[in-house]
Design a protein around this nucleic acid. Structure first.
Lengths: 195, 195
DNA sequence: GGGTAATAATGAAGCCCTTCACTATGAACC
DNA sequence: GGTTCATAGTGAAGGGCTTCATTATTACCC
C-alpha cells in the first residue's frame, strides 16, 4: 500500500540503535507464547524501558485498531457521499426519529456549532430537514427525509456487512470480551477525564 | 460533565419510538448475564434491527474507548505544550534516534507534507533540529535536541503513569487479551483496506 | 553523462472540527 | 411583566490534517 522507500543499508550514525518503525501501516504481527498476537515493532520500540509494558502495548494496539476502524468507516461513508459526522447524525435520526439539534450535539459528542454545520450540509443534500418543535418553539428538530432514509438504510446495510468481515475469526465470546474490556476502559477514562 | 438540557417530557411527535442517546459522553453501562459491561443506550439503539449485534457492539465500544483514549492523550500532550502529532515524532526520535523525515511519514502514518510541518514546529520550539544525512545528501534527519529529550522524558513518564491508571482493574491476562483482539482486528482491517 | 526516481520543501486549497463572541428567539420562574 | 436561562444560528479565527502541483537537490541505473 505504502511504498517503502527507506534505504535499508542506511545505518544510524548516532549512538542510538536503529530500531524499526513504530505504529502505522507497516505492522509485523507475531504470536507470543500464549498464541496471542503482538506487534513486533512496538515490542522492540518499548524494549529496555524498564517498565511493565503490557498496558502500553494493549492501549497501543487499541489505538491502532480504532484508527483503522475509523479509516474503514470513513471510506464507506465516503462511498455514499457522506462523512463520519454526517453519517452519525443520519443514523441517530434513523433510529431515534426527529431530534432537537441540541440533543444531537450532546449525544454524538459534537459541538453545537458543528451540529449546525452538519445539519446544514445534510439539508442542502436533501437528506434531512429542519422542522419546528411544537412543544418548544425555540427548539428545532432534525428530521430524516425520504431520501435520507433511503441513504442511511443502504449505508447501514453495507456497514453491517463490513463489520462482519472485520470480526472474521472472532467467537461470540471474543466479541463480548472485547466489548467488556473496552467499556471497562471507558469507565476508567471517564474517571480520568473528570479530573 | 456535560449538562443535560433535554426536556424529558418532550415526547417524540412522530411514529418513531423515542430512544435514548447513542454513543458519547453519557453512557450508562450495565452488566450482562455473564457479568460483562455493555452500553445500555447502544443496546437499545440497535434493538429490533434483526441482525446479530455482537460485532457492532464490540466495534462500537472499541471506537468509543479509542476516542476517549485520544482525548486523554491529547490532554496530557497539551499539558506539556505538545500535540499528538508532535508527541509522536518526539517519541519516535527518542526511541530510534535521528530519523529521515520520509521515514517518519511512513512510520507514523502521516503525510510527508504534514511531517514537514510537525518538524517545523518542533524545530521552532527548539525540541528538534534538522541535520544533513551524510550517507544520502538528499535526505534530512530529524534529531532530538537536549531540550527535546528532556521534554519527551517528562511526558513519557507522566504518560505511563496515566496508562496505569487507565487499566486499573485489568489483569495481565486481560491486557494481553485486549491486545490480541485488537491486533486481530488490525489484521482483518488491513485485508479490507487493501481492497 | 543523461534520464528517471527519490527526498524534502513550499504554497494553495480544502475538510472537519474547535473556541469564542454575539444575536434573536422563546421558556421558565418569581 | 420582567429577569434569567436555554436553544439555535452566525461569523471569525485557528488547529490539524489532507491533496495537489511545483521546485530544487541528489541517487541510481544504463
Amino acid at each position: 500500500m505504502k511504498p517503502f522507500t527507506m534505504n535499508p543499508d542506511t545505518l544510524n550514525p548516532t549512538s542510538k540503535p536503529m530500531l524499526p518503525r513504530e505504529l502505522g501501516a507497516a505492522h509485523e504481527l507475531a504470536h507470543d507464547d500464549a498464541g496471542r498476537l503482538y506487534s513486533v515493532r512496538m515490542r522492540e520500540l518499548f524494549e529496555n524501558l524498564h517498565v511493565d509494558m503490557s498496558a502500553v502495548e494493549a492501549l497501543g494496539a487499541l489505538k491502532i485498531a480504532g484508527h483503522m476502524l475509523g479509516l474503514l468507516q470513513e471510506r464507506w461513508a465516503e462511498r455514499h457521499g457522506l462523512t463520519q459526522g454526517r453519517l452519525g447524525v443520519l443514523f441517530r435520526l434513523y433510529r431515534c426519529g426527529d431530534t432537537p439539534l441540541g440533543d444531537l450535539a450532546v449525544d454524538l459528542d459534537y459541538t453545537p456549532r458543528n451540529i449546525t454545520g452538519l445539519v446544514d450540509h445534510l439539508e442542502r443534500d436533501g437528506l434531512v430537514e429542519r422542522v419546528p418543535d411544537s412543544s418548544d418553539r425555540r427548539s428545532i428538530r432534525a428530521r430524516l427525509t425520504e431520501a435520507g432514509r433511503g441513504r442511511i438504510e443502504a449505508v447501514w446495510k453495507e456497514g453491517v456487512d463490513h463489520q462482519f468481515e472485520m470480526v472474521e475469526g472472532f467467537s461470540k465470546d471474543d466479541l463480548a470480551q472485547l466489548r467488556h474490556l473496552c467499556l471497562l476502559l471507558v469507565e476508567n477514562a471517564r474517571k480520568e477525564l473528570g479530573k
